[in-house]
Design a protein around this nucleic acid. Structure first.
Lengths: 203, 203
DNA sequence: CAGGCAACCTACCGAATGGTAAGGGCACGT
DNA sequence: ACGTGCCCTTACCATTCGGTAGGTTGCCTG
């Protein structure tokens, strides 16, 4: 059993975090375990020793990412404010978090994009709780409470898609528009997006 | 020279379109030429005969996708309406187009997400014209003309990220929320997103 | 009919992929 | 001193990757 937690859980978490970066940057298929191991300074077999399988490493990366995003959500919801405020706070923090580390948002986007489950058959409930909570909170909103689940899902998807783009697309946008313009866009993104959120959630 | 256009350009375009679907669904690294060929009902070597290289096939897929999206943009801009109307029309058509075929939007998102150029070194100006035109049009807007390129870029990125999510994330969302709810969300998305666009561009 | 040309095939290549087997070093508690 | 367990290693495996070489079909034109 390689997955007993006792041995050096902190190193393990750091390994997973690095794996997150690589998976986020290149996708599941594009990030080979050899490449990940190389970036970590150890051999491919060492990685396999720790995690056994590429897909379980990926699952752990998703799990850690999902946990981080869920914590953002819970922090934003802990006071009993109106749901609009909770959502605004969550998305604001999500944006700030993504600015500091784009990997979680990139993983989320990739996981939403990919058609094939990775690659065994199990459905990935990785971000299920996050998405369901967001949908539920949108449904609790005054503006959307009459509109049903579908409308709330549509709202959540659009907001989640809009929020982190300037950071998840960093490399591509920088190649096209240059570093200074991109940096400026990233600075503006918080204000622009917060307006977008509030106008979507309120009327 | 395999790439002279005369021989059977229509079949060739269909091959590229199918390749688009596969690349969109699995990403560049995740879609092997053997898999693409299998899905097309011919051998891997036949594909290689036509296109020579996986990366050139991918480049052609990007090119075709970019051309389709650019045509959407030009159709939306051909009359000399105010830029707000042009953008609203473009995004509305982009959404409808994505509803009919999600592959282009997925390819765009993936291309924006991926850090590594595929995998030779050349910068991909695939969607450069599209993005630059959108940014320029946003800058022509009354609300954003004072704000500079960075703000316009941020707006474009957020809108492009928001628009197609309900369709590009179709598989994942369907697994989480079920087909009926997803279908409802897709129906609502046009109205919700058009509000989002107009509120962002006007305000 | 001859030739060419595009399409497609079988067969094969080196390299890289994910993964297994077996063992060595090294700290630990007894 | 001695095992025990963790970490990491070398060596190896079958499979698949992208790509090359050479040959075979069938159509279309001279």
């Amino acid at each position: 059993m390689t997955q007993s937690q006792p041995p050096d859980a902190t190193t393990r978490a750091q390994l997973i975090r690095s794996a997150c970066r690589l998976f986020a940057a290149h996708g599941y298929a594009g990030a080979s375990i050899s490449a990940i191991a190389r970036e970590l300074g150890l051999s491919k077999q060492a990685l396999l020793h720790h995690f056994g399988t590429k897909s379980t490493l990926y699952a752990l990366a998703l799990e850690q990412t999902s946990a981080a995003l869920l914590q953002l959500l819970f922090e934003a919801m802990e006071e009993d404010r109106p749901p609009e405020d909770q959502l605004e706070r969550f998305f604001a923090r999500f944006l700030a978090y993504t600015q500091a580390d784009a990997a979680p948002a990139q993983l989320l986007m990739r996981e939403l994009l990919d058609h094939a489950r990775p690659p065994d058959g199990q459905a990935s409930p990785a971000f299920a709780t996050l998405l369901e909570s967001l949908v539920a909170t949108v449904q609790a909103t005054e503006k959307w409470q009459q509109a049903g689940v579908s409308a709330a899902l549509s709202v959540v998807a659009q907001l989640l898609g809009a929020a982190p783009m300037v950071f998840t697309a960093q490399t591509a946008l920088q190649a096209l528009f240059g570093a200074p313009t991109l940096a400026g866009a990233q600075e503006h993104s918080a204000r622009i997006f917060s307006d977008l959120v509030s106008q979507t959630l309120r009327g």
